[in-house]
Design a binder for these strands. Structure first.
Length: 872
RNA sequence: AGGCACGUACGUCAAUGGUAGACGGCUUCCCUUACAAGGAAGAGGUUGGGGGUUCGAAUCCCUCCGUGCCUACCA
């Protein structure tokens, strides 16, 4: 709850560039699925990070009215609950019913977004059907109409006989279908010959107005210009020649039905063929199909046509044939191509705006870059957009008709009356495609067409985070609309997320019932763990793996327990930012080291987040917190922190531990808002907010995100030696099956006085971490033969005397194995350096690097040989 | 039919042309006073096959095999 509620003041400092994301508006009918959860996790990480770096941030939420989906949902409910159709209610009442549904059960997803911890600004929530956004829609429509970019036309369109509306090409699914190819024979007038055409839809032959052949097809050369007696009708149709016809396919002769097939429509236009409409809006045969067929469903008509051809002896053959069929994306009904009067948007000029921007300025920038090509290719092949829909739920087209049929396009009915000079107007019954309002989303939500402060501040937005399947439907249209109406691209970057697939690599889909509900995952593993899992998915397609979430749940648990430890020993202590200053040379190694690690982590996190490298960011956090902080830092502070005697030293150690933890919580916060807020609130001490938010209520959300500070290479190197030492001894303990309670002696021979000093300063720590009772550090090692040994460096040796426990054979094997590994590397390096071209062509630093490494490896091998020899 | 991706450990994924890593799983030991959802140690890879470019290839090019996605007017 604490993390989900974004309740802070406005930043006082406004010099940093504002950061803005407008959410891809989920459907008002929708509920949270994995794709949303993924996108939201990423958007929230970005927003929280920017907020913590003092940018003025806006993540603007909202919903889409989702024309067809929503109308269908209410139509179904109406039928089920009251047995009524939308026509029983009438348009006005039906639309009111949809609004009622929206108020009562719509927008479930916003509740779910709160659960995810999405730090959006709810005060700016938008809905595409609200008055402000509708005003923007009308404004755009009028302007484009006035420019002649929107027009009304009679064309062949995709018609859904179930939903009773036209659909754009993008709302149609092409699905493979096992069907039949029928070979029909048409008699030729004044001849005994017949010409055979192949079709998957015999019923459309009733509307044929020509037969076409390829102009170069010699088989039919003499038939061109002849007339065909169209069977089952009394019509005579011509044989025409057209390049569209592929002589290789079927019989090389095609029946042409301009009113019921998009290709035939085009061919009909080219040859000025008549259009005979034989199928109506309900996919039933019309009167023009002939008395025997009128009123029949298209599939009944198909059977009847085939039967009659057969009885006439004109059915040559029927073969099985797989082809693709167009279906309505929503209801899966087979699309009927129909000629119909619709509104269209000319796209060529809009497209050029977008293409120019990409060519000139490489905008928007796609992440990953590869989508730039996809986007550009699609734009290049763009066709006019059918924007009208025969629905009731949506933005009604702002066009009115006078009694004489004149079209008046205006921003309101009043304006239309003025323009028309009459009040006898009827508004166009159609509504606009849902994507029409979506295209305006980045600026309509910020107040356009008014010149608002928000628009000035936040447009162009910073980044659009979305799935790849709406690059065309949405992304490209936003770019075009933004360029056209604001003159600037709507967003700088477009981040295309990967897809979360099921365990078998299949897309999650309702129909397949293979989806994983993010809410269930929240329940099982927590929101933070789920966010971490999703954030690291980034741009790659990933198979859903619950184990991964479980591991991040464990990570959250680790954070909790580490914080518990810090708080358990926090008496008298508190967070004190100045304790992380590095100019204190008196600091213990582990303190200097953790500060350096913190700085490095901050550097890496900021770099990764600014570069959209979320996978790297998650890895960095995980290892910093678990390995550096928990495994080493906490262990090394234990002696001081848990000491029984109250001392300034103890208090400082405790405070420093709390301060490091506080910094870690800030680093983690964008990914794990819940646990970090919960723990941060419990930490005692000074916890300043970012200077931009000084007056806000205390919350980790508004602290400053840690920035890169000094990296202390010396401490890192020394600590790394300490870690090598401890791991080496632990390895010996493990290999020799020593019990944790078995005390050992550790003998260390170190040439470097510096390093000797480091180990001497930390003998207690080393003893503690290795379970040693004595630590003996000297310049050169004298150890009994009955000791397990390893090399710290090629010159420095560590021995653990194990009287009676050393199996000399086993010990030899252990060392031999290490040696083999090194020998492998030696061989590789040797070969590389032996190549004369390497020295000449490779950069000098690489050559130097290889030489140094080879020297080191050789020394190491030599030292290992010595150890092995001593064992014999 | 074209186009675009992808193929790395048992699984899921990383790796600016420069020693192939992480997490989970697995093996051994440990209920050690923050945490067994834990600790310590360990095993595991000719980077799908073949060829090429390069001093050097998981990475660039070609080809084959496999997988996924997008676009398309073959009746």
């Amino acid at each position: 709850e604490a993390a989900g509620a974004f309740r802070c003041g406005r930043p006082e400092r406004r010099d940093a560039r504002p950061f803005c994301i407008v959410i891809p508006p989920p459907n008002v009918t929708g509920s949270l699925h994995m794709g949303h959860a993924l996108q939201h996790a990423l958007m929230d990480v970005m927003t929280r990070h920017k907020r913590m770096t003092g940018h003025r941030t806006l993540w603007l939420p909202g919903m889409d009215h989702a024309g067809i989906s929503t109308q269908l949902m209410v139509v179904r409910a109406l039928k089920k609950e009251e047995g009524k159709t939308r026509h029983d209610l009438g348009r006005e009442q039906f639309v009111e019913r949809v609004w009622k549904w929206k108020r009562e059960s719509g927008g479930q997803i916003t509740v779910q977004m709160r659960r995810e911890g999405a730090s959006v600004d709810w005060s700016r929530e938008k809905f595409t059907m609200n008055e402000d956004l509708s005003r923007a829609v009308r404004e755009v429509f009028v302007r484009l109409y006035d420019e002649g970019w929107i027009y009304r036309g009679n064309r062949i369109v995709n018609w859904c006989p179930q939903d009773q509306t036209v659909l754009s090409d993008l709302e149609v699914d092409k699905l493979p279908q096992a069907g039949k190819l029928y070979y029909l024979q048409y008699p030729i007038k004044n001849s005994d010959r017949r010409i055979t055409v192949a079709t998957t839809r015999p019923e459309t032959m009733l509307g044929d107005t020509a037969v076409a052949v390829n102009p170069n097809d010699e088989r039919y050369a003499d038939l061109k210009g002849q007339t065909v007696l169209l069977p089952l009708t009394d019509r005579e149709i011509p044989i025409i020649a057209d390049d569209f016809v592929d002589p290789q396919f079927g019989t090389g002769a095609v029946k042409v039905t301009p009113a019921h097939d998009p290709n035939d429509y085009d061919m009909g236009q080219r040859h000025e063929l008549p259009q005979v409409v034989v199928i109506d809006q309900h996919a039933k045969m019309t009167a023009d199909a002939g008395e025997r067929f009128a009123g029949l469903d298209r599939y009944q008509a198909r059977e009847k046509v085939v039967a009659e051809f057969e009885s006439l002896g004109l059915l040559e053959k029927v073969v099985d044939y797989e082809f693709s069929i167009s279906k309505c994306e929503r209801c899966k009904t087979v699309i009927e191509p129909l000629i119909s009067t619709q509104w269209f948007m000319k796209m060529d000029q809009m497209r050029d705006l977008a293409l120019d921007l990409m060519a000139r300025e490489k905008k928007p920038r796609f992440i990953p870059e590869t989508y730039e090509k996809v986007y550009t290719n699609w734009l290049e092949n763009l066709r006019d957009w059918t924007i009208s829909r025969q629905l009731w739920w949506g933005h009604q087209i702002p066009a009115w008709y006078t009694p004489s049929g004149e079209v008046i396009v205006a921003r309101s009915e009043e304006e239309a009356r003025e323009k028309a000079g009459t009040s006898e107007l009827t508004q166009d019954q159609d509504v606009l495609d849902t994507w029409f309002s979506s295209a305006l989303w980045p600026f309509s939500t910020l107040g356009w067409p008014d010149e608002t402060k928000d628009l000035e501040t936040f447009y162009p937005t910073s980044v659009l985070v979305t799935a790849r399947d709406i690059i065309f439907l949405w992304v490209s249209r936003m770019v075009m609309a933004g360029l056209k109406f604001i003159g600037k691209e709507p967003f700088a970057d477009v981040y295309i997320t990967g897809t979360v697939l099921d365990a078998h690599g299949q897309r999650m889909a309702k129909m397949k019932a293979n989806g994983v509900d993010p809410l269930d995952v929240f329940d099982k593993f927590g929101v933070d763990a789920t966010r971490l899992t999703l954030a690291q998915v980034g741009t790659t397609d990933t198979r859903w793996n619950e184990k991964q979430v479980e591991s991040y749940r464990n990570f959250a648990n680790k954070i909790w327990n580490a914080a518990r430890f810090c708080l358990l020993y926090s008496e008298g202590a508190g967070v004190k930012p100045e304790l992380l200053q590095t100019n204190d040379t008196q600091l213990a190694l582990h303190d200097r080291w953790i500060i350096s690690r913190l700085n490095k982590t901050a550097r890496d996190m900021n770099a990764a987040l600014n570069a959209y490298e979320f996978h790297a960011a998650v890895q960095t956090l995980y290892h910093f917190f678990w390995d550096d902080f928990c495994d080493w830092y906490i262990e090394l502070t234990k002696a001081d922190v848990t000491s029984d005697t109250d001392s300034p030293q103890r208090t400082e150690a405790r405070s420093r531990l709390l301060t490091v933890l506080e910094q870690a919580l800030r680093l983690l916060h964008p990914f794990m808002p819940y646990i970090t807020e919960e723990l941060w609130q419990r930490l005692p001490g000074e916890k300043p907010l970012h200077s931009a938010y000084k007056t806000a209520e205390p919350t980790v959300m508004l602290t400053a995100y840690p920035q890169a500070g000094a990296i202390d290479e010396t401490s890192e190197a020394e600590m790394s030696m300490l870690i090598t030492l401890v791991s080496g001894v632990r390895n010996i303990r493990s290999e020799h099956n020593l019990k944790p309670s078995d005390r050992i002696a550790v003998l260390i021979g170190i040439q470097s006085a510096n390093l000797r000093k480091v180990f001497e300063d930390n003998t207690d720590q080393i003893a503690r971490l290795t379970g040693a009772s004595t630590i003996d550090i000297s310049a050169s090692l004298t150890a009994p033969k009955a000791a397990a040994k390893f090399l710290l460096t090629s010159t420095d040796e560590v021995a653990v005397p194990l009287e009676g426990l050393v199996d000399f054979g086993e010990e030899t094997k252990r060392l031999q194995k290490k040696k083999e590994k090194l020998q492998g590397e030696e061989a590789k390096l040797q070969a590389q350096l032996a190549n004369p071209d390497f020295a000449v062509r490779a950069p000098a630093d690489k050559v130097e690097q290889a030489k140094n490494r080879l020297d080191e490896v050789r020394l190491h091998i030599k030292a290992l040989d010595q150890l092995i020899e001593n064992l014999q």
